[in-house]
Design a protein around this nucleic acid. Structure first.
Lengths: 334, 334
DNA sequence: GCCGGTCGTCGAAGCGCTTCGACACTCTTT
DNA sequence: AAAGAGTGTCGAAGCGCTTCGACGACCGGC
């Protein structure tokens, strides 16, 4: 077992300085002579000192912890979520913060609790819905927060996300450039649209806008996630639109099913039907054939969210809305 | 913005009692008359009091936070992980604890840091490898810990997991009961075996043991996760073992590919080849046909891990090893 | 050679909570 | 009726840290 915990006053004694001097060496908030600093630092490592988080939080009114509120709900793309979470943790560590994991089952109570008890300094929320119950709460909280995703009325909030509108449009444009005249968007399961989740809707709108702009024929459909349902959807789609030659898939779980269904229906990709996906890079790369895709820049979004929330914590003014531009990677499916 | 934070002394004043009395009402560590308790509780809700976590941690030497150390690494089954994480958070909340998320990229330094700074009271680690660098550290830590998964030398540690050995055996038995004489196990990608991850190895060993016991012919192969690689593996398997009529798949990501490959190779499931999967329930149910499977009881494992770590925190003695028995759900694939 | 400024350091006052010992009561027990 | 045993409550002492004001020591300017 590790030896008894070392306190700052033991470090001070060991280095022959005052407790406050040790504190200032650590925080850098006052100038300290190079010589004193050295001695203090040496004592710290000699004794294996680690500041007590509770004491620090109490005295400084900063816990150096941010809350990450994850949904963990039906219809979510778990692996992507995980990459967001991972990115948030990594980014937070770079700002010397840790991450407290909150799930949505506790609802708003959990958010209120960790904020009121000063357990966390700030919050990052994921999977924000258009009409999110948590949003009003955030507005009344003293703690800064950043949303990954956009609610219906984002005024007064800080939101960051991939620009899904642009992503939907970009896919349509790409298919148009390849000469396709009649294209379709296969999106999230219909329950996701019903819930009004922003990213699904915005992709569809961007797709529709580009289709209109470019004078294409286009249709957008929700898409379930079991093979059989996907198969039916694809079969009906091809039946209803004989001239269709391009498909955009914005549904990570359905990607491989769509490809399998096309194969089974005798359509070759990309010769008969071109396919563009909006999904994580590894899913696109692993598909057969590897898919032209818009990357969901999970790492970048997570990093940006943390940067923004840290800026707010420091009292800096940040933009209300941060949209990361879509990046299209061309592979063999178009 | 929310009003200034309410302290315990304001509650005490409001209720007309001493600060310590409020504290005892909250903790229940001394008897308090029903009348006083009522008044204090009323004041608490009237003022909207929430104890300050830092102050509490400092005074009580308990942060009421546990660390969850997640891997987030190649070859992991992310959705399952997520269910573990979710279960851990939910269970921790039931013990009035929060969860701090630690990723493995920080390595042992992160564990050391949160333990030494008293940020957390205890640790739950996931995805433990047979030869895990974190294990020696855990032994020297004062904070209790529980591992989800088993390292090679688990002596002195507390570990909990699905009994994968029994699960592998159970699958073989089930196929034997159905009359299959020659069967195969398709497991994790070979990198996972190379890394020596316990669950993969243990499943294979259990499978092999049951095959030997039951006098079957059996083969165990690693299995990659792209369709093309899976296809090749399955094709070669059928070529090399013409009499093969049962397959156990212990690889969530490969499950649908295996089914697709069998279909493409003209084998019907279950008529020509019976398939048993070891994977999360929803994956098995969503496959076509729905798969007979051993459930990975993520919720139960997470809950159990938290219960164990809380017991240790209270100084209770807990078993070194907790193996949750596999449960086979029969569906249409066998 | 004295004054005003930095610079580097110290001591002490909290931060908001838990917990320990004390104490005033009220019951039992003899 | 006195001694002992609970109850219920209080006050005060920390927990380990940050931060504020104070204060020598040293500097250059006049």
């Amino acid at each position: 077992m590790s030896r008894r915990t070392v306190t700052i006053s033991e470090v001070a004694k060991h280095a022959g300085v005052a407790v406050s001097t040790v504190s200032y060496v650590l925080s850098g908030k006052r100038t300290i002579s190079a010589d004193t600093r050295r001695r203090v630092l040496d004592s710290i490592s000699a004794l294996g000192y680690h500041p007590n988080a509770g004491a620090r939080a109490l005295a400084s009114k900063r816990s150096n912890v941010i809350a990450l509120v994850l949904p963990l709900r039906a219809g979510m793309h778990v692996p992507v979520l995980m990459r967001f979470a991972s990115a948030v943790v990594t980014a937070a560590r770079r700002f010397d913060h840790d991450v407290l994991l909150l799930t949505a089952d506790e609802g708003t109570a959990g958010i209120r609790r960790v904020a009121a008890s000063a357990l966390v300094d700030a919050l990052v929320l994921m999977d924000v819905e258009l009409d999110d119950r948590r949003v009003p709460l955030l507005r009344e909280l003293a703690e800064p927060s950043v949303l990954i995703g956009f609610p219906a009325r984002p005024a007064g909030l800080t939101c960051v996300d991939l620009d899904f509108h642009a992503a939907g449009a970009r896919c349509a444009e790409h298919l148009a450039e390849r000469g396709h005249q009649e294209i379709a968007l296969l999106g999230a399961p219909s329950v996701v649209y019903d819930r009004g989740t922003g990213f699904a809707t915005r992709t569809r709108d961007g797709f529709a806008a580009a289709v209109a702009d470019l004078g294409l024929k286009g249709v957008a459909l929700p898409c379930e996630e079991t093979f059989d349902e996907v198969y039916e959807t694809v079969r009906d789609l091809l039946l209803d639109h004989p001239g269709l030659s391009g498909v955009v898939v914005h549904n990570e779980a359905a990607v491989s099913h769509v490809l399998a269904a096309l194969r089974q229906l005798g359509r070759r990709v990309p010769q008969d039907v071109a396919v563009v996906a909006i999904c994580p890079e590894d899913v696109a790369e692993r598909a057969s054939p590897p898919l032209t895709s818009v990357l969901i820049p999970a790492e970048e979004v997570g990093r940006e969210a943390v940067r923004l929330v840290m800026d707010k914590l420091e009292g800096r003014v940040v933009p209300d809305s941060t949209l990361l531009p879509p990046l299209l990677a061309v592979r063999s499916s178009t």
